[in-house]
């Protein structure tokens, strides 16, 4: 997986008027991975995506897709990109099929049978010749996916693909995305403000907040960290105990919160820590554990202004 990146974002900035919306984002995406771009509404996800596909001009920095600069060589760069930007807004007065014909005419070398193939892939065979205005939101979403996959892109960009879908629709989309990423080695870049959804879908997650990319982690790591519990020890004397733990376990995250010593440790280690504390003459008057979900962690990172 870790070969040449398909997308390179280098110190990307966007300024509108005097307001800076994106403050220097750098990120590499690799073939075949599903990357989640996570952040609360207004964090800059959509702006970043719009700059990636050339809908918005880049103020500073550069974006390379498949080695081509989006600013300088737009046509080459975008050739390998398929996307849905926010809602899949198609021509409602045309049939689904005409919509696909429309987009296929804008790309050289697309065969008719390719359209039929894609229609089958997204399961729209029965309704494809009906007008889009008769479609449900889920069907429009699938048609949106079809138009994005028409030219066998190397990078699929999906901006909030599950917005407004019911749980079944969300699952359906998720299945498609995982399937195409695995089968066709497509890089998928998905934005969302729902962590729970990203967790199931993505290999890596980048968290964006106030126009800054705060952290990029693999989902595996995030989940592993989740096994840790914040354990509150009511211990006396507090500061001495804190110092002792810091010296003895330098790799354990420890801090003082109110009258308590808080350690981030795994559940199975609680006994060991308690034993050590007691054996070294500290007075222990209470222990209580606090499970932190990924969601809470995310809220902590983004300062709580997350709409879930």
């Amino acid at each position: 997986m870790k070969n040449k990146p398909i997308v390179q974002i280098k110190n990307l900035k966007k300024q509108i008027g005097k307001t800076t919306i994106i403050h220097g984002i750098s990120l590499d995406l690799f073939p075949g991975e599903v990357f989640g771009f996570l952040g609360p509404n207004g964090a800059g996800k959509t702006t970043t995506i719009r700059m990636m596909v050339g809908l918005m001009k880049i103020t500073e920095g550069e974006i390379f897709i498949n080695g081509f600069s989006v600013q300088k060589n737009f046509e080459k760069a975008i050739e390998h990109v398929g996307g849905i930007i926010e809602n899949p807004e198609m021509y409602k007065f045309l049939s689904g099929y005409d919509n696909l014909i429309h987009y296929s005419r804008m790309i050289p070398k697309i065969k008719k049978h390719k359209i039929d193939e894609i229609v089958k892939l997204v399961g729209l065979e029965k309704r494809i010749h009906e007008k889009v205005k008769t479609y449900s939101l889920g069907m429009r979403q699938r048609l949106g996916l079809a138009q994005a996959l028409l030219h066998s892109p190397k990078l699929l960009i999906l901006d909030e693909p599950t917005n407004g879908l019911d749980p079944a629709g969300i699952r359906e989309i998720r299945t498609y995305i995982r399937k195409i990423a695995a089968e066709e080695n497509i890089t998928v870049f998905v934005s969302s403000h729902l962590l729970s959804e990203m967790q199931l879908l993505c290999d890596r997650i980048g968290i964006i907040h106030n126009g800054k990319l705060i952290s990029v982690e693999t989902v595996k790591n995030m989940v592993e960290e989740q096994n840790e519990v914040s354990v509150h020890f009511l211990v006396h004397p507090l500061h001495k105990a804190f110092k002792f733990i810091q010296e003895r376990y330098p790799h354990t995250l420890s801090r003082i919160k109110g009258e308590r010593l808080v350690l981030n440790i795994r559940e199975e280690d609680i006994t060991e820590y308690t034993k050590v504390i007691v054996n070294h003459g500290f007075k222990l008057s209470g222990i209580h554990g606090e499970q932190k979900t990924l969601e809470e962690k995310f809220i902590e990172i983004t300062g709580g202004d997350l709409h879930v």
Binding site: L55, E75, I84, Y103, M106, P108
Partner: peptide, 14 residues
């Protein structure tokens, strides 16, 4: 106004 401009402009056509 219908938002179709977005999908129209993300094609390899200037």
């Amino acid at each position: 106004t219908t938002g179709t401009i977005k999908l129209l402009l993300i094609r390899p056509v200037n």
